[in-house]
Amino acid sequence: MPPAPPWPFADPPETEVIVLDRILSGDSPARLVTHDQEDGAWQFLDGEQVFEEDAAVVLLGEVVQVDPSLLELADLPPGWFAWRPEPGAPWRRAEGEPPATIGGEG
């Protein structure tokens, strides 16, 4: 069995992150990821409306097990966000606050 690739994130796999329950359950794909400037926190969202009760705190290593494509965002700097219109589409990146809605090429 080949060795596992090195962990690509600067934050360890045990870092607590915010993710939506519907992403963890597989009901919705991760389409928006934010890396907060102030505290370096990661949020994994689906680009839909979010209520506080929709979110869960889990470990970064758990989130990338649910969606390994999130490993592509390991180098996302604090203060940036990434989005994609659908799973399998390339991640796009921008600095600042994400727009109120995401999708398509917007």
Results as ranks from 00 to 15, higher is better:
Gly104Glu: 13
Leu60Gly: 10
Leu24Gln: 07
Val50Arg: 09
Gly47Ala: 03
Phe51Met: 14
Glu38Cys: 00
Pro78Ala: 14
Gly40Asn: 01
Gly104Gln: 10
Ala74Asn: 15
Asp75Ala: 15
Pro87His: 02
Leu71Pro: 10
His35Cys: 09
Leu59Glu: 14
Trp80His: 15
Leu70Gly: 09
His35Glu: 03
Val66Phe: 08
Ala55Val: 14
Val58Lys: 13
Phe44Val: 06
Val63Thr: 09
Glu52Phe: 12
Glu62Asp: 14
Pro99Ile: 07
Ser69Asn: 11
Ala41Gln: 05
Pro2Gly: 06
Ala41Trp: 02
Gln49His: 15
Leu70Ile: 05
Ala100His: 04
Val57Tyr: 07
Glu95Asp: 09
Ala94Ile: 02
Thr101Met: 07
Ile18Cys: 03
Phe81Lys: 12
Val33Phe: 02
Leu32Gln: 05
Ala82Glu: 12
Gly88His: 01
Arg22Cys: 04
Ser25Ala: 15
Ala41Val: 01
Asp36Asn: 11
Pro77Ser: 11
Ile18Met: 09
Pro85Ile: 00
Thr101Asn: 03
Val66Leu: 11
Glu16Met: 00
Ile18Gln: 14
Thr101Gln: 14
Asp11Tyr: 06
Gly104Arg: 07
Ala100Thr: 06
Glu48Cys: 05
Gly104Ile: 04
Asp39Gln: 06
Glu14Val: 08
Pro6Leu: 04
Leu73Thr: 08
Leu45Val: 08
Pro90Glu: 09
Val33His: 10
Gly61Ala: 10
Gly103Tyr: 00
Pro77Asn: 06
Glu62Phe: 07
Asp27Ala: 14
Leu32Asp: 14
Pro68Ser: 08
Val58Met: 11
Phe9Trp: 12
Asp54Gln: 15
Gly40Asp: 11
Phe51Ile: 01
Trp42Lys: 06
Gly47Cys: 06
Pro3Ala: 15
Glu86Asp: 05
Pro90Ser: 08
Asp21Trp: 06
Trp80Leu: 03
Asp67Val: 04
Ala55Leu: 15
Leu60Val: 11
Ser28Phe: 05
Val58Asn: 06
Leu20Met: 12
Glu86Arg: 13
Phe51Val: 09
Trp83Asn: 00
Ala94Glu: 10
Phe9Arg: 08
Ala100Val: 02
Ala89Tyr: 01
Pro99Asp: 05
Leu45Thr: 07
Gly96Gln: 10
Ile18Thr: 14
Leu59Met: 12
Ala56Ile: 03
Ala10Arg: 15
Met1Thr: 08
Gly103Asp: 01
Val50Glu: 14
Asp75Val: 08
Glu48Lys: 06
Ile102Phe: 10
Arg84Glu: 12
Val57Asp: 09
Gly104Thr: 07
Arg31His: 01
Arg93Ala: 00
Glu14Pro: 00
Glu97Val: 04
Glu105Ile: 00
Pro3Arg: 12
Pro8Thr: 05
Phe81Val: 01
Trp80Asn: 06
Pro8Leu: 15
Asp54Trp: 11
Gly61Lys: 12
Ile18Ser: 13
Pro8Asp: 13
Ala30Asp: 01
Gly26Phe: 03
